[in-house]
């Protein structure tokens, strides 16, 4: 097999990897917010359940969680899992990352001094105005470095979809390497992850510098 054939075989896996990456971010960034607000909810059962859920998501391996989401429905309810592979991957990644983002949001929001809320209250801002105009812009600046870390981790974590035999770039690299007795697929995969993270890094640096206008 030529290098070009390998590359084209693996490019499909790269697209799948990018798919997991995009779906996870699009799903978990907003869902993290929902989880944060659920954890802060005044309704006790909601806050307790959310808190326990976040702890489980952060306290167990994502690989294990993926297996549970994939096989759980079968063992628990006897449901067939034929087409559920990609669904389980999406659910597993989105929920896991949302839990991390919820904690990052919490840290950011709680770091805003009480005086900011008091000043806004005295000036007559509503609660929503206070959050959107005063608190949120400051929180975004504070949490961006942590978000960048998570996004970079996610690029590499997508390889965990391999656990469910999903044909993303890491799975393909392993299969190709075995069938072709070649080391090259791993090199290709490595370069792919590295370049992806390099792009993430450049992008996030741009976003962070957009918030450099104040300390």
């Amino acid at each position: 097999m030529t290098f070009a054939t390998m590359l084209s075989t693996m490019s499909e896996g790269m697209l799948r990897t990018i798919g997991i990456f995009v779906i996870t971010l699009v799903g978990s960034l907003p869902l993290g917010f929902v989880m944060y607000f659920m954890k802060k909810s005044k309704i006790k059962p909601i806050s307790v359940i959310t808190k326990v859920f976040i702890e489980i998501m952060r306290g167990t391996p994502l690989m294990l969680q993926l297996l549970v989401w994939y096989f759980g429905p079968y063992y628990l309810f006897g449901w067939g899992i034929g087409n559920w592979r990609f669904g389980a991957i999406c659910v597993g990644f989105v929920l896991n990352y949302a839990a991390y983002f919820a904690e990052i949001y919490r840290g950011g929001i709680e770091s805003i001094p009480r005086g900011q809320y008091e000043a806004a209250q005295i000036l007559g801002y509503t609660k929503n105005q206070t959050f959107i105009r005063i608190i949120l812009p400051q929180v975004v600046k504070i949490i961006l470095p942590s978000i960048t870390n998570e996004v970079i981790t996610l690029v590499k974590d997508t390889s965990l979809a391999f656990t469910l035999a999903y044909q993303e770039v890491f799975s393909l690299a392993q299969q190709l390497s075995a069938s072709q007795t070649s080391f090259m697929p791993f090199v290709i995969a490595g370069v792919f992850y590295f370049v992806a993270n390099y792009l993430v890094s450049i992008g996030m640096t741009k976003v962070e510098s957009a918030f450099d206008y104040y300390d």
């Binding site: 001094p113 005086g115 900011q116 008091e118 000043a119 005295i122 005063i134 812009p137 400051q138 600046k141 104040y214 300390d215």
Partner: peptide, 14 residues
């Protein structure tokens, strides 16, 4: 209508 000036200013930094 009232206003309040704080000891620590509490300006909006952004």
């Amino acid at each position: 209508k009232f206003g309040l000036v704080f000891q620590n200013f509490n300006l909006f930094p952004h």
